[in-house]
């Protein structure tokens, strides 16, 4: 599972980081960053990552399977 982030669309609401703290975080500038190595979401984080995608208020996240 990979997730794409549409950065121009992201407004830093941070709901993804609340939903999936192991996958996403907001840095000090409220820019979205990945918390894992590489580009593939680790198995154990997938349900949370999906919830994060669903919670994004501006639909900036997308699951690329």
């Amino acid at each position: 599972m990979k997730i794409s982030v549409d950065y121009p669309r992201c407004e830093g609401h941070g709901l993804c980081a609340d939903q999936a703290p192991d996958v996403f975080s907001l840095d000090d500038d409220a820019e979205l960053t990945y918390r894992f190595e590489g580009t593939v979401v680790p198995d154990e984080s997938r349900p949370a990552a999906r919830a994060a995608v669903n919670a994004c208020p501006v639909a900036a996240l997308r699951v690329l399977t």
């Binding site: 407004e11 919830a51 919670a55 208020p57 501006v58 639909a59």
Partner: peptide, 20 residues
């Protein structure tokens, strides 16, 4: 409850700009 995906602020392109 995990209600983060609720639609009360809308969602997507027109998602409430003032929700923060």
């Amino acid at each position: 409850r995990d209600a983060a995906r609720q639609l009360g602020f809308g969602q997507g392109t027109h998602g409430c700009a003032g929700q923060g």
